Simulated scan of single mutants.
Amino acid sequence: MAPHTRYTRLAEEALSPAHSVIATSQTYDGAAPFPDFPDDDRPAPARSGGERLQVAVTALIVTLPFLALGLAAWLLWGTLIRPTDALLALALYVITGLGVTVGFHRGLTHGGYRAGRPVRIVLAVAGSMSFQGDVIGWVATHRRHHAFTDRPGDPHSPYRYGTHLRGQLRGLAHSHVGWLFRNDPTPVERYAPDLLADRDIRAVSRAFPALCVLTLALPFALGWAIGGTWLHATTALLWAGLVRIALLHHVTWSVNSLCHVVGRRPFRTRRHDRATNLWPLALLSFGESWHNLHHAEPTSARHGVDRGQIDPSAAVIRLLERLGLVRDVRWPSPDRIATHRT
Rank of each mutant, 00 (worst) to 15 (best):
H142S: 10
H142D: 02
V188I: 15
A147F: 02
V125K: 02
H146P: 10
L238G: 04
A140M: 10
G228D: 05
G178H: 05
S157H: 03
H142A: 13
A203M: 07
F181G: 01
A221K: 09
R144Y: 08
A126R: 06
H232L: 00
W239D: 10
A126V: 04
P187M: 11
L195R: 02
T163G: 03
H176G: 03
P158S: 07
G227D: 15
T229G: 04
S130E: 10
R151I: 09
H176T: 06
S205F: 11
A203R: 14
P185K: 07
A147L: 05
F220V: 08
V125N: 00
Y159G: 02
A217V: 05
T163C: 04
G167A: 09
Y161L: 06
L196V: 02
Y191A: 10
L238M: 04
S130A: 15
A240Y: 04
D150K: 07
V177Q: 03
D198F: 07
A233M: 05
H146L: 12
D134Y: 11
A173T: 03
W179N: 02
A140D: 09
V125E: 01
I201Q: 07
L238I: 01
P152L: 07
A221Y: 08
A236M: 03
L211K: 03
A217Q: 03
I201D: 06
S175K: 10
P219A: 04
A173P: 03
G153H: 13
G162I: 08
H232N: 13
A240R: 09
H142W: 11
L195T: 08
W230F: 15
A203V: 12
C212W: 00
V125Q: 01
W224R: 15
Q132A: 12
S205M: 11
T149M: 10
F220T: 12
L172K: 12
G171Y: 07
S128D: 05
L218A: 14
T234V: 09
L216A: 03
T215S: 14
A140T: 13
R190V: 15
W239H: 01
L216N: 01
T149G: 05
A217E: 11
R143I: 12
V125I: 13
W230P: 12
R166Y: 09
R182K: 14
I226Q: 07
T186K: 00
